[in-house]
């Protein structure tokens, strides 16, 4: 069967319904693999279709991807352990976020997932102590620019990124889940209070907390780059934990609309749902990828890029920020 690959919906379908790969010919596979790599979902794809019939060349590529994801998982957990040791003397909860949290808790969202930086959430009142402890343990500033540094400290939901001088790995230390300049102000205290303690005393957000964070990151911040991977995270969390109490929790953080939207779009991409209205634009954006792994739909992408800045800060501040950045460029 020859299927014309129009966008990354074919990848979404392969993840949600692994049996759908049965119809792929060589070109279909090549396109699917290129897309999955570009969306950083090849490890996830490899886990999902493991054991199904496929050409030997494809199996070899996906075996490698699984191996690489396993190595990535080990490295991410090690990095979390390094942070745990560095922060052991600081008397505050340390909550793992995103990919590292998924693999630390053994969740399906972590299976085959690519993991970049280590993201942690700590109480805002502890942030100075945490920063000092990390600097003492070998992490260093990445951004030497004083404007960027000051901007992060005053307006962002995280410290300027730190990198470890020996392991070359980044850590993002959050004190809340959205920039302070955003119109929505989630309640980080409630997120930390609800967090779940792991065996090694590190924590993860509660299942609803993880869902809310993922939805906030996708729809209230950023330009939806890597959106397909984040939506897959949400899909796995919903499947594993359900949505009991999710609406109420989302309401507490002012993120009801974002959480509802993420569930609708997950259903449209990975389930039987059909996107309607403005949701169709979001689907258009997160599937904007062709069979060569190239980003497509430049106008849609640009619109979401502009929107991300609009969401992140009030107009006068945005103008000032862009002016400063422009002068420095």
């Amino acid at each position: 069967m020859v299927r014309v690959v129009k966008d990354a919906r074919v990848l979404a379908r392969a993840l949600a319904d692994p049996a759908s790969i049965a119809g792929l010919d060589a070109d279909g596979w090549t396109a699917l693999l290129a897309m999955a790599r570009a969306e950083q979902l090849i490890g996830t794809l490899a886990m999902r279709v493991d054991g199904l019939a496929m050409p030997a060349a494809v199996k070899a590529i996906l075996d490698d991807a699984r191996e690489a994801a396993e190595h990535g998982r080990r490295a991410a957990l090690w990095e979390a352990e390094m942070a745990r040791r560095a922060l052991a003397a600081v008397d505050c909860p340390v909550v793992l976020l995103k990919g590292t949290a998924f693999v630390a808790a053994g969740l399906s969202a972590g299976q085959g997932r690519s993991i970049g930086d280590l993201d942690i959430l700590v109480p805002r009142e502890s942030i100075d102590t945490v920063e000092a402890a990390l600097l003492a343990a070998g992490w260093e500033w990445v951004k030497p620019d004083p404007y960027d540094d000051a901007y992060y400290r005053r307006w962002m939901h995280e410290l300027p990124p730190l990198i470890h001088r020996e392991r070359d790995r980044m850590i993002d230390v959050h004190h809340t889940i959205l920039p302070l300049t955003a119109r929505i102000t989630p309640d980080p205290v409630a997120l930390i209070d609800d967090s779940v303690t792991l065996e090694n005393a590190l924590r993860t957000l509660s299942p609803n907390g993880m869902l809310i964070h993922a939805a906030a990151h996708l729809f209230a911040d950023g330009d939806l780059a890597g959106g397909l991977r984040n939506l897959w995270d949400i899909r796995c969390l919903v499947e594993e934990f359900g949505t009991d109490g999710l609406a109420a929790d989302a309401g507490r953080h002012g993120l009801s609309a974002q959480v509802a939207r993420s569930l609708r779009i997950v259903d449209a991409l990975f389930g039987a749902g059909e996107a309607t209205g403005i949701d169709r634009l979001y689907v258009r954006r997160v599937t904007a990828r062709d069979g060569w792994g190239r980003p497509t739909r430049p106008v849609t992408r640009l619109a979401f890029y502009i929107r991300s800045h609009w969401l992140r800060m009030p107009p006068a501040m945005l103008a000032r920020h862009l002016w400063t950045k422009f002068r420095k460029a």
């Binding site: 693999l33 050409p55 030997a56 060349a57 494809v58 070899a60 792994g293 190239r294």
Partner: peptide
């Protein structure tokens, strides 16, 4: 050509 017609890597000159 690539085994089974499926390339390990895609390269783009653009």
């Amino acid at each position: 050509g690539p085994r089974d017609g499926v390339a390990d890597f895609t390269v783009r000159l653009f």
